[in-house]
């Protein structure tokens, strides 16, 4: 999967301001709504929260992957966000999260969404990459890490 086609400067954000899981998710959805065309914030939020209800998407090592499926989108939408202060995300390892990867995909097309998450999680599996992302000062820096980390 070519991350270059999916990730742009607009889909990466440093310095998220939310301090709760709900706030972080809403903040990320606002970015997707701003980047997309005619996307209903409520529908996206509902899709993501429904998935969170089944099982929290807080993974290990301060990474969370909130995602949802809804047919108001026709293709994959992603946003990557980093927060300066750790936020409790009900994670698997009980540690608070700082790196958030959100995807919204159509109900029938789970392939690209899983492929994207798999690609990203392969990068985030390296401590070195995580450290660099947390230290990054701008969206451009993070984008660079993801696009270069691939090679």
């Amino acid at each position: 999967m070519n991350l270059k086609k999916i990730l742009t400067l607009d889909s990466v954000k440093v310095g998220l301001t939310g301090s709760t899981k709900q706030e972080i998710i809403e903040e990320l959805i606002d970015i997707i709504v701003a980047n997309g065309r005619n996307l209903s914030r409520d529908v996206l939020l509902k899709a993501v929260m429904e998935r969170e209800k089944q099982m929290s998407t807080g993974m290990n090592n301060g990474i969370a992957i909130p995602h949802g499926k809804t047919d108001v989108v026709t293709d994959l939408h992603v946003v990557i966000g980093v927060s300066q202060k750790p936020v409790d995300f009900a994670s698997l390892d009980k540690k608070p999260a700082r790196i958030f990867i959100m995807t919204i995909s159509p109900k029938s097309q789970t392939g690209p969404h899983l492929q994207f998450l798999a690609e990203v999680s392969r990068l985030l599996g390296k401590d070195e990459v995580c450290r660099k992302i947390l230290e990054a000062k701008s969206s451009g820096d993070i984008l660079k890490i993801f696009l270069e980390g691939r090679a």
């Binding site: 998935r51 089944q54 099982m55 899983l114 998450l117 798999a118």
Partner: peptide, 12 residues
């Protein structure tokens, strides 16, 4: 990781 994600989502 792809397969683990897929299996998790499907089980959910």
């Amino acid at each position: 990781s792809f397969v683990r994600l897929l299996l998790t989502e499907e089980i959910l």
